[in-house]
Amino acid sequence: MTAHTSPGLYGRPEVVGERAFTVQDIDDHACRSRYLRHLTGMLSRPVTAAPAAPIPRVIVQFWDDSAHIPADVHECVTSWTVLEHQGFRREVYDDDSARSLIGSLFGDVHTAAFDSCLHPAMRSDYFRLCYLARNGGFYVDADDFYQGTDWTPLFRDSRLRLQALCYDTATDTMVDPRQAMVSDGHGGTFIHYVNNNPIIAPAGHPVVVAALDASTAALLAHAGGPLDIQSLTGPGNLTVALARHALHQERSGQPVDVEILLAWDAVAVSRWPLSYRSDERNWRLWSQQQ
């Protein structure tokens, strides 16, 4: 098959191996990973022209019980207060305030989807999509500690900004995405995807809206049993939405209005260990007894 040659943002075709990437490939984990590697290489480069409409300078965070934020998490949350002196507003939501906002923004259907999120991590995942789809802004997880670095490159234009991630199935470890871009290709053990933290987005960005729509439908259709948080509300869901949007844009010869961040750790680090990570407040340790 002849490789498709739509210019995308940098004039490179969207190819998987020696053939064009197809919509059907998005549902294949290995093909989607290869396409995400292509996107990461393409969308992590500087651009000379990009949409200029401003992204709201509001920092949005979530902890399910705002009256009982652990001290070590509170330290992370408040590390961002320094930006209040640089033109940012901070909004910290919990289960009750997030549910109320979702109801006011969307109504009963989305409120029901939020209520079906059985773990706080899921509610956090779903809430951020709801908030950003309507309002735009800068969502960051409550366990990310701000490093005090220059934030202005993150707001230099109105592209959606997402963090690159890479996981090595052979070693069961995360890989620095910068290193993965130069070392991948030896054995096909790397999985390339994007995180749902941070999300820096203008209101109504197609990737965020599509991720919200997909998550809402999947949550309401879930028939019981174990929940795959990654694919229902988390990074897997957002990665699929990004891949679909980028493929459509490339095939249409339109810019992919996204920047993939390779060095988010220069801006913020996820503190480890934190007290909540050792119990079922950590979704990875959740027993899912329903």
Rank of each mutant, 00 (worst) to 15 (best):
T2Q: 14
T2V: 14
T5Y: 07
Y10T: 15
Y10K: 15
E14L: 14
D27E: 15
R32Y: 01
L36F: 15
R37F: 04
T40G: 01
S44T: 05
S44C: 04
S44P: 01
P46T: 12
P46L: 02
A49M: 14
A50N: 03
I55M: 04
P56W: 05
R57I: 11
I59G: 04
D65S: 14
H68Y: 10
V73T: 15
E75Y: 06
V77Q: 04
W80I: 04
L83P: 11
Q86T: 05
F88G: 02
E91C: 12
V92N: 08
V92F: 12
D95G: 14
S97E: 09
L105A: 08
F106W: 06
F106Y: 14
H110S: 07
C117D: 06
C117P: 02
A121E: 10
R123V: 04
Y126D: 01
F127C: 03
F127N: 07
L129G: 06
R134P: 02
G136N: 05
G137R: 02
F138D: 06
F145A: 15
G148H: 10
D150S: 09
P153W: 05
P153R: 06
L154E: 09
D157S: 01
R159D: 05
R159M: 12
L160P: 05
A164Y: 07
A164S: 11
D168Q: 03
T169F: 07
T171V: 10
T171C: 10
D172R: 12
M174D: 14
V175Q: 13
V175I: 15
D176M: 13
G185V: 09
H186I: 14
G188V: 10
F190Q: 09
Y193N: 05
N196Y: 02
N197A: 13
N197K: 03
A201F: 00
H205C: 05
A211W: 00
A217R: 14
A218L: 03
P226L: 01
L227N: 10
I229S: 10
S231F: 11
T233Q: 01
G234W: 01
P235M: 12
L238E: 00
V240P: 00
A241T: 00
A266I: 07
V267Y: 07
A268R: 10
Y276D: 07
R277A: 10
R277K: 14
R281L: 02
N282E: 08
